[in-house]
């Protein structure tokens, strides 16, 4: 039995070594423990037999003992290794837990960042809109004084708000009336009798390039029946009498009109 166990022991290390790569420390420990158990049992049996018979060679006993000691050394080594591995395993677990924690932290952070991004995106969008409006406002910047002046001018002439005394039949309108139009430079220019101005038509400088034509509509208008319908009843009489030129009477009439609704564009300062 001792010889067979010795052979066994000889095989074992080889098998143990060969399997060391694949076997876990736990298996190796278990096999070492098993060997130890077998060896010690053998030794005890041997000792028991030797006590009874008292004729045994001490060589075999020593051999088994040495094997036992050797195996014990291996077992101790393995135990150390297992302890180390246990520590490492524990460390790994701790690290894994830490990783999990960090992972959730990162996810949380990512969520927050996403939220922040969304908030920032809307903020940026709003800021851009604001900038746009600021730019627009800056482009159209006008002093309040000027606005008040302008407001005063257009309201004083009843151009944007009807006079309180306005009643149907009143010639005043929120736009240049026929008379106003013809008393202007445009009306005079298209009048054949004041041909002198015609040389200075601004058409050449226009994008359209054809202002003379464009402005011409005033000319045929003077003989148009429609113009009569346009005029309020109390003025149609004057209108019919009006000669193509510019007589004194007409001028007076225009003057009256102008003071009423503050003369046309030309007097802007």
């Amino acid at each position: 039995a001792a010889a067979s166990s010795g052979e066994k022991e000889k095989e074992r290390p080889g098998g143990g070594l060969g399997a060391a790569g694949g076997n876990s420390t736990r298996e190796r420990l278990l096999s070492a423990l098993e060997d130890l158990e077998v060896l010690s049992r053998e030794l005890i049996e041997m000792l028991a037999i030797s006590r009874n018979q008292k004729l045994l060679q001490s060589g075999e006993e020593n051999q088994v003992l040495e094997l036992l000691i050797h195996r014990d050394g291996e077992f101790q080594e393995l135990m150390k290794l297992a302890l180390n591995q246990g520590k490492i395993h524990h460390e790994m677990q701790v690290l894994e837990k830490e990783v999990e924690k960090r992972d959730s932290d990162i996810q949380q952070l990512q969520k927050q960042l996403k939220e922040a991004e969304q908030i920032l995106a809307t903020a940026v969008y709003q800021a851009k809109e604001k900038l746009k409006s600021i730019e627009k406002a800056r482009k159209g910047a006008i002093s309040s004084e000027e606005i008040i002046k302008y407001a005063h001018r257009i309201s004083a002439s009843n151009a944007v708000c009807a006079p309180l005394t306005w009643v149907p039949g009143d010639p005043r309108r929120p736009y240049p009336t026929d008379l106003e139009m013809r008393s202007g430079l445009l009306g005079q220019m298209n009048n054949p009798s004041t041909n002198g101005v015609n040389g200075h038509l601004p058409g050449d400088a226009l994008a359209a390039g054809r202002l003379p034509d464009v402005l011409a509509p005033q000319y045929p208008w003077q003989s148009n029946d429609m113009a009569m319908n346009m005029l309020p009843p109390n003025h149609s009489h004057d209108f019919l009498l009006e000669p193509p030129g510019h007589n004194k009477e007409n001028e007076d009439d225009v003057e009256v009109m102008s003071t009423d609704s503050s003369s046309s564009s030309s007097d802007s300062d």
Binding site: Y175, P176, M181, G184, M189, H200, P202, A205, L211, S266
Partner: peptide, 27 residues
């Protein structure tokens, strides 16, 4: 300069004539 002045006034008058719907109808 005088030409520009004249052109300014003419266009000023003309653009305001556009407020008159009867004139627009005529055009």
């Amino acid at each position: 300069d005088a030409g520009n002045r004249l052109r300014f006034q003419l266009e000023l008058e003309f653009v305001q004539c556009l407020a008159n719907p009867n004139y627009l109808n005529f055009l």
